[in-house]
């Protein structure tokens, strides 16, 4: 049995005819010890999907209109408050993008880590355990650093404290929502190394949310690419990066300059990400797609398994793309 199974998740904001569907039929599974990357641009629903695993999206305004989220076989969407408290930070821990905004500025970081311990492993809520956790995430001189306030630490160190706090409860699943976006590249490399190392040492599952395809190649076993509230491609990481099948995945990869590639012109994706109020009919990517045909505007394509383990939401995935698509703006 997989650790996490999301089945056809549907999430709306608001009610009635003006309700906006932020997540539209997302299904994915995560096995124990596996790393899955959720890739997409802002507003595609990747963060809301990840927050839903511990039901952290405030409702109202959010409403779960369908689907289930099975965590260790139990549906999170039907849990009562006490059960939810048990899994939040217990089975699932979160690390967010902006460490300086996630830490409480008026408490010492050691105190904040101890708070997490008190909640989930009260017998271990002692200074020694805090020191062990800080050492685990590679903070030098942890006995001194635990007495620091968040503002006394750099961004990279703050993110390590956040990870230490997330690990305090020995979670089965670590959800990292853009954990390195606010950090410099050299610090980003340190944090990615740390996550990779922790994954093998603690045998956790990691759900990593990112918009950077380079990080996918570094860390992920499998990748789910999201666009406008739907998964458009789900595949083992190496296969996806070597041979993307969905036109959006391919366009996304082509629009990023590659280091060492020189000054060849970028192929931009024309237009913008559609807003939730004005979702195009049919395939949600068709207005920006180089492969689009008239029928794409009529029929909503399903996510189909085209090769073992590779799922694509495009019926024309075998068709070659036009050699070059121009930016229209």
């Amino acid at each position: 049995m997989s650790l996490l199974e999301i089945r056809n998740l549907q999430l709306e904001f608001g009610i009635g005819p003006t309700a906006l569907r932020a997540v539209n039929g997302v299904s994915l599974t995560l096995a124990a010890g596996e790393t899955l990357c959720l890739v997409g641009e802002s507003g595609c629903g990747k963060s809301v999907t990840a927050l839903s695993i511990a039901r952290l999206v405030p409702s109202p305004p959010a409403r779960y209109v369908g689907g289930e989220i099975l965590l260790n076989g139990k549906d999170v969407l039907r849990m009562n408050k006490a059960d939810l408290r048990g899994i939040r930070g217990g089975v699932v821990s979160y690390v967010f993008q902006e460490p300086s905004a996630s830490l409480n500025p008026v408490f010492r970081v050691g105190h904040q880590i101890r708070e997490a311990l008190k909640l989930h492993r009260p017998d271990r809520a002692r200074a020694e355990e805090v020191v062990r956790l800080l050492k685990l995430v590679g903070i030098p001189a942890p006995e001194l650093r635990m007495r620091d306030y968040p503002h006394q630490l750099s961004g990279g160190m703050q993110q390590r404290v956040m990870i230490a706090m997330a690990l305090a409860s020995e979670p089965k699943l670590l959800v990292a929502d853009e954990p390195t976006t606010a950090l410099d590249v050299t610090i980003q490399a340190q944090i990615l190394d740390l996550l990779r190392d922790l994954r093998t040492r603690l045998r956790m599952s990691i759900l990593l949310i990112t918009h950077n395809l380079g990080i996918v190649g570094d860390l992920a076993d499998r990748v789910a690419v999201m666009y406008a509230g739907q998964i458009v491609e789900l595949s083992p990481a190496t296969d996806l990066l070597q041979r993307p099948l969905h036109p959006y995945t391919l366009a996304l990869m082509n629009s990023v300059p590659k280091l060492g590639a020189g000054a060849q012109r970028l192929t931009a994706i024309p237009g913008n990400v559609p807003s939730l109020e004005a979702m195009p009919p049919g395939c949600r990517f068709h207005p920006r797609c180089a492969r689009a045909r008239p029928e794409c505007a009529r029929e909503v394509p399903g996510l189909i398994e085209v090769e073992p383990g590779r799922w694509v939401r495009c019926p024309f995935w075998t068709q070659p793309l036009p050699a070059r698509q121009e930016a229209l703006g």
Binding site: A189, D193, G214, G217, T238, V256
Partner: peptide, 22 residues
């Protein structure tokens, strides 16, 4: 700095120099 940039190509096995400290 260059070695720290994550690369998309999974086939490239670059040696990464991870700088200590801030």
């Amino acid at each position: 700095l260059i070695s720290a940039v994550p690369v998309v190509d999974p086939a490239s096995k670059r040696r990464r120099i991870v700088l200590p400290g801030d």
